[in-house]
Design a binder for these strands. Sequence first.
DNA 1: CAAGATTGATCGTTCAATCTTA
DNA 2: TAAGATTGAACGATCAATCTTG
Lengths: 158, 158
Amino acid sequence: MAESSRWLRTDEQSAWRKLAAVTVLLPAALEAQLQRDADLTHFGYWVLAMLSEAPDHAMRMSELAAQTFGSQSRLSHLVARMERRGWVQRSRVSEDGRGYRAALTPAGYAKLVESAPAHAAEVAHIFDGLTPEQVAILDELCAVILRRLEAATNASPA
Amino acid sequence: MAESSRWLRTDEQSAWRKLAAVTVLLPAALEAQLQRDADLTHFGYWVLAMLSEAPDHAMRMSELAAQTFGSQSRLSHLVARMERRGWVQRSRVSEDGRGYRAALTPAGYAKLVESAPAHAAEVAHIFDGLTPEQVAILDELCAVILRRLEAATNASPA
DNA sequence: CAAGATTGATCGTTCAATCTTA
DNA sequence: TAAGATTGAACGATCAATCTTG
């Protein structure tokens, strides 16, 4: 907790303001699109997408939480809502009786397939402004930032 | 609404996954730090910071909303909470009787000054992983993305 | 009536507590 | 007792409705 407390340089401040704006406006844009076109949260869409890519369209709750960077509680509430909507179904894991397995229903898969194109178009629209070189640079830059973030998260306990 | 619906290339998908992760983990890290050290939301901190940089430590509600990319409703609720905490005080604008002016109190300014170093350190920690060249590139890349986002937002109405 | 701002209801997330199985 | 997961209360954001002033 006793930080060496350095300040940001001018160039860092400029970049930070823009990056902060991106982390606000980008999610907001995707949220708005999915809400409008599919009555879906961005996080909810992400969960449907993850399940659709998994073997048998199913995943353990804990694994789903880990891969989406969400808490178990968050996933539990969300999947409960999706189960009510008929898109997912939970069942106990045969091996480990403590675990639950969330599986996409046909209706859930249909929902994803139906809402994917408009969402992909929204994301593609962002990338249309970047050259392939810039996409590569963006990829690497994000990778560096992610490493810093993960390091910070895991370094918390002494 | 009739999108030409293009899909993402492989390199774009890779970059998109990382960028999406950043937009989730970066705000989460800042949120956690501010919550833990200052019992403050990142958005709340941002509002205090904007006010502190404004002339007389005060701003119109509508301007505050615009500069933080928040809705008027969001700002209204937030400032009401901050007023209860004694950090901000609202008063009518003399020129335009419809408007409200939110002003930082001494206690509010003290709260910001007190919580700034730890927060700055958290942000600086992210940038420590980047070379000055990379910071410059990040700045430009974010600028491009922001232009796309703003264009998309303003192009909505036909 | 339009613009600036607030209010109350509703929705999703977090936090702490709980339940069940290993 | 710990791990996987759920539950209910509390908090913050959004949405629609309202109030007030231009």
